[in-house]
Amino acid sequence: MLLRGCLAIYYREMLILRKKLFKQMASMSVGPILYMIAFGFGMGRDVQVQGRLYIEFLIPGLIAMNSMTQAYAIASEINIARFYWRIFEEFQAAPIRNMAYVTGEVLAGITRALLSVAVVIVIGLLSGVVLSYNPWFWLAIVLNGFLFSSLAVCLAMLVRSHADQALLTNFVITPMAFLGGTFFPVERMPQWAQNLLQFLPLTHAAHSIRSAAFGQPIEPGSYGLLAIMGTVLFVLAFYCVTQAKE
């Protein structure tokens, strides 16, 4: 019963995604293209970071950032369904468990994250950047998607309007996108800032994705941390959905 409910929710999100696929893909590529032009090409082809061309350093960061924003974007879809179309009531009146609802939405978030990664990889390939897309690379992306789509479900249930959701995005996602090791190595920051940034999940996601993409040894601690934080947020999402009933 859990699986059927979860698949029904996932099916709905995929139907919506399929209908807007071209627009979504175009939207997913705007950010990475702009950042590549501004930071990648704008800084010149010769700039090196950690012994690699900056553009090579940047692509894994953009992958981490894009997968985060796209996984988190399901919060907007949930809000539109909840406050605008009121479809959330249809889900609540159906014989599906709250766990099935959360799992379906989180799976949809991970799917969006993977799609957005494919977009960045293609842009990277067109720019001549070829990285190692091994299982550790994909695992880091799935964990990143899992974490941020769980966070999205939590926050989508806590907010009271669509405007509140946009406000939360500004406070939670935007700082993470710029400070989580996307555009520069966290190691270049002052020690106190580095200590603080270790608490951001994107720091670990960007680091893990970059290490895997460069074929460097992976850090199991970062993977473990992403998995633990994701699981905590997933459980919280379940709790928030249960509370949202009232």
């Binding site: 029904a8 099916y11 209908k19 249809e90 159906a94 014989p95």
Partner: peptide
């Protein structure tokens, strides 16, 4: 509270899946 992004068929099909 129909899903306006979907067709009539898709709305009914989704409900069937939910049940």
């Amino acid at each position: 509270n129909l899903d306006h992004e979907l067709t009539v068929f898709e709305n009914l099909d989704l409900h069937g899946r939910l049940f």
